[in-house]
Design a protein around this nucleic acid. Structure first.
Lengths: 187, 187
DNA sequence: CTGAATGGATAGCTTGACTATCCATAATAG
DNA sequence: CTATTATGGATAGTCAAGCTATCCATTCAG
């Protein structure tokens, strides 16, 4: 498959594909000559992954680049792909206020209560705290305890979903995990 | 409070406030003279709402404008504020594929199974369908039935949260509802 | 009375995500 | 084997979103 085929298969224009190649989001094809390269199924999957992260996850290309780097890095365990994808979804917000501190503590207690394994530096902590601050400032006095009752069930379901990841090669697993994280988040 | 005070109280620069005024996102202050206007608490809340929708909800100003129009429209019931906020969060995606049709049907059945009152034209239907398509194309064979077991509980909780909306004036209720919808979505 | 602030108008800036054009080379249809 | 089309690589241009800066005639505050 050459670039026209890749464009056809992925629904993305050749110009855009060249752009992704330039930006290093898409690996160069297998060069057969100075102006001829061959692309494979992996490239199609990669492009679809980029588009899903972009359109569904509303991630910026800069964040997508980091996610893809993790996908390509053999040092990153499949298990950590969730964290990477989630971190990239987090919008940057002001984290200096005293409310934020209060919210962060609430999140920490919540994580501890449910014995969740969430990295200490995971951005999702901040994201949840951000949401709490926004709700408080809007006069909505949400307590995370509200979720307590349903968390065990939710966690169990998430675990089950993980079982469903197909055991092809690592690249496919990483992609499935990342796209699943984003899509699940949206769902 | 004049514009400097509003800027101070909301943490948004005067230039940006003027921009929001120009764009009609922020109501003009109470004019005292040709170059003098008075802003109140409502303006501060409005600015905070805009920022929350922008940063937390990642909405575009064009979408925010629609949400605010609904907030200001006395013809829109508080109950519908959820739908408006959710609709604005939905990213536009390609909806022509056969997979999308299949996903949409799955969503419809899901909504019916749980007796949810979701407008026929609500964008969230499409959004859920989009997420399904993305997961399927990623090789993740999610069935919405997976959620069936926990839906009753989730719905009950959502209903309870709604009770918590304070009964101040309509404007405040709308704002709380909108910001709550977005923040809850994120959380 | 004078310097800072205000509302209003207009123009400019920055970032992100492409899109278009050129060119030398390579594949391919006739 | 030639004429057309496609390709990779480089460079420049486009477009929208979301501000930011400047100017000006007024007005307020010390």
């Amino acid at each position: 498959m050459r670039i026209a085929g890749l464009s056809e298969a992925s629904g993305v224009s050749i110009s855009t594909l060249k752009y992704y190649l330039r930006e290093g989001l898409l690996h160069p094809g297998d060069a057969r000559a100075v102006n001829q390269a061959e692309y494979g199924e992996g490239h199609v999957r990669r492009v679809r992954l980029i588009r899903a992260l972009l359109e569904l996850g509303k991630l910026q290309l800069a964040d997508i680049r980091r996610v893809l780097a993790a996908v390509d890095d053999d040092g990153v365990a499949i298990h950590d792909a969730f964290g990477v994808a989630q971190d990239a979804m987090v919008p940057a917000r002001d984290r200096g206020s005293p409310e934020y501190g209060r919210a962060f503590v609430a999140v920490e207690e919540f994580v501890r209560r449910h014995g969740m394994r969430v990295r200490q530096d995971a951005q999702v902590r901040g994201m949840l705290a951000d949401a709490l601050v926004a709700m408080w400032s809007g006069g909505w006095d949400l307590d995370l305890r509200t979720f307590d009752a349903s968390m065990p069930r939710i966690l169990a379901e998430a675990g089950q979903e993980l079982e469903g990841v197909p055991d092809d090669d690592r690249a496919v697993q990483m992609e499935v995990t990342v796209i699943g994280t984003i899509a699940y988040e949206v769902a």
